[in-house]
Design a protein around this nucleic acid. Structure first.
Lengths: 190, 190
DNA sequence: GTCTATAGGGGGATAGAC
DNA sequence: GTCTATCCCCCTATAGAC
């Protein structure tokens, strides 16, 4: 792997583990094996390198989600597949966690990829819910955008609950709870 | 206010704004107006002071939630009141945000109040949902603990969406989506 | 491209005077 | 209880040699 490549990958890992404020250039250098000079040759500084890392992580998350959401199955099944998708729950969401980073929120350039990714995800899920409404799978009274927001929020909040307790249990419970509420009425009494 | 008191209050504010990693003793001193010596006289160090601050914030959140949850109304109405409670959405949850702080998660003493608070909240909501099931307000097939987890997760995740976009809109959308799913069946076609 | 040297400021804490 | 002095290491970046 090239040096810029190794720098970006190491930064991605550290941002996921420790956030932006908790990640120092020195830590990135140690993890990547690159030298001080290399880093400042390829990137303008910490924000520049972080931006490259965040953009890549956001792109990756989007691709993963699209893989599940465009898969086979009814709308309900695709939403379920998204919610039940395998996750490293205790590590949290590498995109969502950045919203708790004051320096990311304060910098529009760093916040943009985070915003765009979560927004895209919501819009994509909203489409699917609307499709489910047309097929009679979801109540026509529901708002696709609102349900989509609830789905994304449940996942993001599930990470919070799991990390607080040190166990993925609460994440799974929240997902099951939401799926039970989403289940078509005829399945309700199962 | 006494000096220890001012130190704790300043620490609470900074932990909310910048998290544990992003909060330095120096910043606490500046905000509280206390001197270096005072701080290390009253507290063993940053973790000790943070623990006092986190405990108080956790206690306060619990009291606020209990105030709403033990209020008047049917179980659905009380859950709704909790979800719609006025919040400074863009500031995030002062307790939940700590789960994204690596140094908090790594320290059992600091994590404990966070865990206990969110766990208590879930249990309290679960009771209310079970009560609602008995009254026929919620489907008997639902699991109180799972619905409670979904409710708490939606709130915590709502903060993430709001902060990503820089607007409370997404938080409100997620809450409305969840409430629509929770609404008793006879209200579904409204 | 990568290395080492250098730099000013901050993080987190201790010591001892008052 | 509070103040100042002091400490060592880390943070982030620049400069210039190789």
């Amino acid at each position: 792997m090239s040096t810029p490549e190794r720098l970006i990958e190491s930064t991605r890992e550290l941002l996921w583990e420790r956030g932006y404020v908790g990640t120092s250039p020195k830590a990135i250098l140690e993890r990547s094996g690159a030298g001080q000079g290399s880093m400042y040759h390829h990137f303008k500084g910490k924000p520049d390198l972080a931006l490259a890392a965040i953009r890549r992580t956001a792109q990756e998350m989007r691709a993963t989600a699209e893989g599940v959401l465009s898969g086979p199955g009814t709308p309900y099944e695709r939403v379920e597949a998204y919610l039940r998708r395998e996750r490293d729950v205790l590590r949290g969401c590498p995109v969502g966690r950045l919203t708790m980073d004051p320096d990311v929120i304060a910098d529009d350039a760093l916040r943009a990829p985070v915003d765009e990714t979560l927004d895209w995800l919501r819009a994509r899920l909203a489409e699917i819910v609307e499709e489910g409404k047309e097929r009679g799978e979801f109540a026509s009274s529901l708002d696709g955008g609102e349900i989509a927001a609830a789905v994304v929020a449940t996942v993001q909040g599930g990470y919070v609950l799991a990390r607080a307790s040190g166990s993925p249990t609460a994440f799974d419970a929240a997902v099951r709870g939401l799926l039970a509420l989403l289940a078509p009425p005829e399945d309700r009494t199962r």
